[in-house]
Simulated scan of single mutants.
Amino acid sequence: MGDHGLGTAALALVPTALGLLRALHPQLRVHVTHMEPERALPALQARDFDLVLAEEYPGNPNPRPAELEQEDLLDDALRLALPQSADSGDADGPTAVLRSLAHHPWVMEPEGTAARHWATTLCRNAGFEPDVRFETTDLLLHLRLVEEQHAAAFLPDLVWNGQSPTVALRQLPRGQRTRRVFTVVRRGGSGHPAVRACRDALLRAVALRSGRA
């Protein structure tokens, strides 16, 4: 199993899925690797992995090679996370709240990632170029920087892993409020018993997290 740059999804879902696999398929040996998005899908195509956990941000669809098959896992809500010092309420609407952070420091994922492209475009559509002072793929560090009032950030709901939010959250403009989380396998591989078991375990982990099971 490869993890397509999804630290929060891995943290929220993979340990639960592994527990389910251990209980239901004790003989199944699972390896998990956290890898940059640009390397994960080529590694899948090269047969280094049999399954990749991937993400897609609004307005930024991933390539869909004919030799790969996708299956939706969940829609993960995206929100603006505000340092306490920058919390100006949301009476004027999502775009106005976002625009109020035009001169505030930001933490974002590194240049070249889909998440960074989405976040930068969102700020530009609100009328400003974000002042990105911190760059990291670790979304828990994003959260910590917001908590310590060093930066604003865009955080997915999976970062809370079932816990109550510790920072002020505001809704994003329409059409920008969720990212798609899904699994990818090589074409024809979805029927393999081990792949099916892993996909079923991840779906069950999503259901358990949302209280549907």
Rank of each mutant, 00 (worst) to 15 (best):
N60T: 15
A66H: 14
L172K: 05
G112R: 05
V146C: 03
L172I: 07
G175T: 07
P110N: 13
A86M: 10
D72K: 08
R187A: 13
M108K: 01
H4R: 12
T121E: 14
R64I: 05
H103D: 14
E69I: 08
S190Q: 14
S85P: 01
L78V: 08
P63C: 11
H25P: 00
E71C: 07
L51P: 00
L80S: 02
A153H: 02
V32H: 04
A10H: 15
R39L: 15
P193F: 10
A197C: 12
N125F: 04
E56M: 13
L68E: 02
D200P: 03
H117L: 15
A96L: 05
L41E: 03
E55Q: 14
G191T: 15
F182D: 00
L82W: 04
R179C: 09
L203Y: 07
A96M: 08
R196Q: 10
P193G: 14
A153L: 01
T166Y: 08
L145K: 00
R179H: 10
P61R: 10
R174M: 15
D48Y: 11
E55S: 12
F182I: 09
P156H: 06
F49A: 06
A194S: 13
A46W: 15
E135Q: 12
E147L: 08
V195R: 09
L140T: 12
H34N: 10
D75L: 14
N62M: 14
V167A: 06
